[in-house]
């Protein structure tokens, strides 16, 4: 699983310091944005907590790590592009949308068609961990992301989310 290929700049120390010159900083931010999305996609990471260690943000072989400030800048740049969302006002937790909500919604529709659930009912847990989605892109999808994608479908009248019997078991009814 750990065959992730780090780009050259990950081994070049100054990329771990926020650059003061604007042009250089813009290039630096661009590179980090791409790397964060690629890394999270590869490892299926949905949430980055800025207060915890995150392997991508330090490189022990060159003894460099990103400061809190630079993590916030890079993630903030993703947020402003719609490729990430802050989960709290303090900008401590960040949801990484390496696939846009729209694209997740499309994947769900594909899944629905494949299993003939056009008028059917399933639970969120089924989608995340059930046998049907095993081995597909949907397996292990973050709950928050899944809800966002289903809400998007709800807005379009293609799905309705409802509370299940237990508190943490929500269901969804498709009507496509």
């Amino acid at each position: 699983m750990d065959d992730f290929k780090f780009p050259y700049f990950f081994n070049y120390p100054p990329y771990f310091t926020l650059q003061p010159v604007r042009d250089t900083r813009e290039k630096q931010i661009q590179l980090w944005k791409e790397l964060i999305l690629k890394y999270c996609k590869h490892h299926k990471v949905f949430l980055i907590n800025l207060e915890e260690e995150f392997p991508l943000f330090s490189n022990t072989s060159i003894d460099r790590r990103l400061t809190y400030e630079s993590r916030e800048v890079f993630l903030g740049a993703l947020v402003s592009e719609g490729r990430a969302e802050w989960m709290d006002k303090g900008h401590k937790k960040c949801l990484i949308l390496w696939r846009r909500i729209q694209d997740w919604a499309d994947l769900i529709l594909e899944f629905v068609h494949e299993y003939g659930l056009e008028e059917g009912v399933t639970t969120l847990e089924e989608i995340r961990t059930g046998d049907e989605t095993q081995g597909t892109e949907l397996a292990g999808i973050d709950r928050v992301v899944l809800v966002k994608a289903l809400k998007l479908l709800e807005q379009r009248g293609k799905a309705a989310i409802f509370k299940g019997t237990s508190a943490d078991d929500e269901g969804v009814k498709f009507s496509i």
């Binding site: 120390p13 100054p14 771990f16 310091t17 010159v21 042009d23 250089t24 003894d63 460099r64």
Partner: peptide, 18 residues
């Protein structure tokens, strides 16, 4: 630095800017 030929690095443990 303005010409894009140099980059700063404040991350070394000794704290000296490179």
């Amino acid at each position: 630095m303005k010409e894009g030929l140099a980059m700063v690095d404040d991350g070394h443990p000794d704290g000296i800017r490179r």
